[in-house]
């Protein structure tokens, strides 16, 4: 699909909005539908569309493979680390109330951290799988 002008221009126009929508889904999850899983998949979708249209090498220049494979465990570590903070401050595992002065705000913050961990793991797993499949085929 290297020379398909309409696809190339269209995808170039779409990708910023996809990433923006993913961020919206991620950060607005407090009040609207969405969360880390959905945002992660949309982010991965943006990267995969880019790789499909512009070729896998171009995509790996933007999102290097090492970075993706680093982010897969990092997301889980962020999630578990947020939980461990609770133990560190003498509460239960995944007790977010240690993250701030008053409990509701602290728990909101905890949900935010945890969702970031989910986002990183889900999106990078999808992209890593796509990279692995498409490199195997060559």
């Amino acid at each position: 699909m290297k020379f398909d002008l309409i696809l190339r221009v269209g995808v170039k126009l779409m990708i910023p909005f996809m990433l923006l929508f993913a961020l919206y889904v991620q950060l607005h999850a407090d009040y609207g539908p969405g969360g880390g899983f959905q945002a992660g998949v949309i982010t991965a979708g943006a990267v995969i569309v880019y790789a499909l249209i512009f070729g896998i090498e171009e995509a790996q220049r933007v999102v290097p493979k090492r970075l993706v494979e680093l982010l897969v465990p990092l997301g889980v570590l962020i999630y578990a680390g947020t939980g461990l903070l609770g133990i560190l401050f003498g509460k239960n595992f995944l007790d977010y109330s240690v993250l701030g002065a008053n409990p509701p705000l602290a728990r909101e913050r905890g949900i935010l951290f945890v969702e970031i961990g989910v986002l990183l793991t889900v999106s990078s797993t999808m992209v890593a799988l796509f990279y692995a499949f498409s490199e195997r085929g060559r």
Partner: peptide, 29 residues
């Protein structure tokens, strides 16, 4: 009142049932 989060689904998934979601993320990983 507890979490300051309006979306009930997000509050349940990430806070009340946070351990389950950790498990899900681990499964994906």
């Amino acid at each position: 009142k507890d979490t300051n989060v309006g979306n009930l689904v997000a509050a349940i998934l990430a806070d009340y049932r946070g351990f389950d979601t950790l498990g899900e993320v681990t499964v994906v990983f």
